[in-house]
Design a protein around this nucleic acid. Structure first.
Lengths: 165, 165
DNA sequence: ATACGTGCAAATTGTTTGCATCTAT
DNA sequence: ATAGATGCAAACAATTTGCACGTAT
C-alpha cells in the first residue's frame, strides 16, 4: 500500500489497439463517473489479452498492480461493457470471455476436442449475415460469433491421442 | 404421485424425435451400464423440451417423478452426452443448454435485446461451412451454432420499449 | 450377490451484494 | 467536501464430489 504506479495508461503498444484509451477519461466524465487506476488497468488488460475471462483479466491486472480485487474487475468489466468499450461472449464452458469493442472483428472457431480457439475474418459470414437479414430480419452481431466444431489437427488425428493439450 | 410409471419410453410422440429411445437400453448395456428410470426420464425430458438447462430438465423430470435429484440430472446429462445422445451449447449467460443429437438440426438466433431464441435451418450455414472446411480445415458443428444479434422486432422498436418479454 | 447408480450433504467455483473506508473531482 | 469507487467478507448460485444405501442385472 505504498505508492502504486497505477496511473500509467500506455504500458503496452499505444497503436496496438484502436480502442481510445485516452478517451476513457472523457467517456467517464461525460457520465459523471471517475477515472481510476483500476479502470484503466482493466481496460488495458482486455486490450492486451485479446479475449479473456474475468479471472484472466484479474490475473493480468494483478501482474501490474497487485491488490486489485476480483470484485472490482467484475464491476469494471460490467461498466466498460455498459460504456460500449468491451463486450463478452461465451466460448465453451464456464466464464464469459471479454474482448474490446472496436478491436478488429473476428470470428471464433472453438475446437471441441482440444479446446483451442482460432480466429478468422468475419468476412466468412458475409453471405450468412445477408441471408438472415433478408429472410428473418435478424441482424447478426458479427463480433460475437463463436463456431464450435473440430479443428484440422484434431480431425486428422485418430481421436484417441488427443490427450495432450 | 403414487406408482411412478417410470418405465414408459414413449410418453410423447414416438415419431417426434429420431433419437432411438428404445435403444437406450442397448447402448447402456453395450457399455456395461444400467438402464434406470432416471436415465429414461432425463432423456425423454431433453427430447420433449427441445433445449433446456440442467435445471429445466430437472423440473421436467420432477413433474413426472418427484424425488429425482438434481445431482443425478447432472450426472445423467453428462452420461448421455458421453453416449452421444445429447449435446450442449451456451445460449447467452449461465447454464448450458442441452438438446438431443439427431433431433432435427437447427441454428439458434439469440436476440441480445429481448433474449428471445429463434431457430432457422442449418442450410443457411452451407456456404460458411464449406468455406471454413476448405480454408481452415475446420469442421463446423452445425447443430451447435448460436448466432447473437438483434431480432426484427427489437430492431424495429425505438430501443426503449423493449421491456416486455 | 455384486457392482453400478442414486440421493444426500458437504465442498468447490464463479459471481454478486452490503457496507465501511478511501479518493478523484 | 462529497459522491462515487474500492476492498473485504458474506451471501448466492451453479456444479461437483464423497459416501452409504438402494437396485438393475
Amino acid at each position: 500500500m505504498s505508492s502504486s504506479r497505477l496511473g500509467d495508461p500506455d504500458k503496452r503498444d499505444p497503436d496496438k489497439h484502436c480502442g481510445p484509451d485516452p478517451s476513457l477519461a472523457e467517456i467517464l466524465r461525460g457520465r459523471g463517473l471517475r477515472l481510476t487506476a483500476q479502470r484503466q488497468l482493466v481496460l488495458e488488460a482486455v486490450y492486451g489479452l485479446g479475449h479473456a475471462t474475468p479471472d484472466q483479466v484479474h490475473a493480468a491486472v494483478s501482474r501490474t498492480a497487485a491488490g486489485v480485487n476480483i470484485t472490482t474487475v467484475y464491476r469494471t468489466l460490467e461498466l466498460l461493457e455498459d460504456l460500449g468499450l468491451v463486450t463478452h461472449t461465451h466460448l465453451s464452458h464456464g466464464s464469459p470471455t471479454y474482448h474490446a469493442v472496436g478491436e478488429y472483428q473476428h470470428v471464433h472457431l472453438v475446437c471441441r476436442v482440444c479446446d483451442g480457439v482460432d480466429e478468422v475474418s468475419p468476412s466468412v459470414l458475409d453471405g450468412l449475415v445477408k441471408g438472415l437479414e433478408s429472410s428473418r430480419g435478424f441482424l447478426v452481431d458479427v463480433g460475437h460469433v463463436a463456431l464450435f466444431g473440430i479443428c484440422r489437427q484434431c480431425a486428422d488425428q485418430p481421436a484417441s491421442e488427443s490427450e495432450n493439450l
